[in-house]
């Protein structure tokens, strides 16, 4: 049996012009403010700055080599060993890949279970962070981060002090205590 569509009866829900307005319609409507409070944060997010003024990931250094997420003070050999250790520690194919044993299939039955009603896990747009720390400006900024990172770490108290002074701690604490 042949089946034809009467094109004259097919109408899109939205015209092309309306479709391009949909993102603005959906996300720019008045919604509760989701930004973090922090009186000292007044920087405008990078996205609004012209490309040449933006700092890129590759321009940021925490004053040390973070290639393998470990302290870069060791030599190449030790670094390689550490990298192998990283892989060994983080790769446990049996325990990690077999996620079925750790999944409650009911939780993953449909998308609704993963979005807890009004308390939906937010996408990146909803988790709006307060303005970021001022980006590093040339070597001065890198030296500032290096100074914050290279506090003496001998003993748990000193190590805790170094952690508390680290950039990540300051960033997370500025957003409020995470619970």
């Amino acid at each position: 049996m042949t089946w034809t569509i009467d094109e004259s009866r097919v109408r899109p829900f939205l015209t092309a012009a309306e479709r391009h307005d949909v993102p603005a319609l959906l996300w720019n409507a008045p919604q509760p403010d989701r930004s973090f409070s922090g009186p000292e944060d007044t920087e405008v997010p990078d996205a609004g700055r012209p490309p040449q003024a933006r700092k890129h990931f590759k321009d940021f250094k925490d004053g040390k080599d973070r290639k393998d997420g470990k302290d870069g003070k060791d030599g190449k050999e030790v670094k390689e060993m550490k990298e192998m250790k990283d892989v060994k520690d983080t790769k446990d194919g049996k325990d990690r890949k077999d996620t079925k044993d750790n999944k409650d299939t009911k939780d993953f039955k449909d998308g609704k279970d993963n979005f807890d009603g009004a308390m939906a896990p937010p996408g990146p747009a909803a988790v709006v962070r307060q303005a970021q720390e001022p980006p590093a400006v040339g070597s001065g900024g890198m030296q500032r981060f290096a100074a914050a990172a290279e506090l003496p770490g001998d003993g748990p108290e000193e190590a805790a002090a170094a952690l508390r002074a680290s950039r990540i701690n300051r960033l997370l604490r500025r957003r409020g205590v995470i619970i």
Binding site: D62, A160, S166
Partner: peptide, 13 residues
């Protein structure tokens, strides 16, 4: 994936 990186320089191995 199976790689991870800590953000701070503290010795937490």
């Amino acid at each position: 994936g199976d790689r991870a990186w800590r953000s701070s320089p503290a010795d937490l191995d």
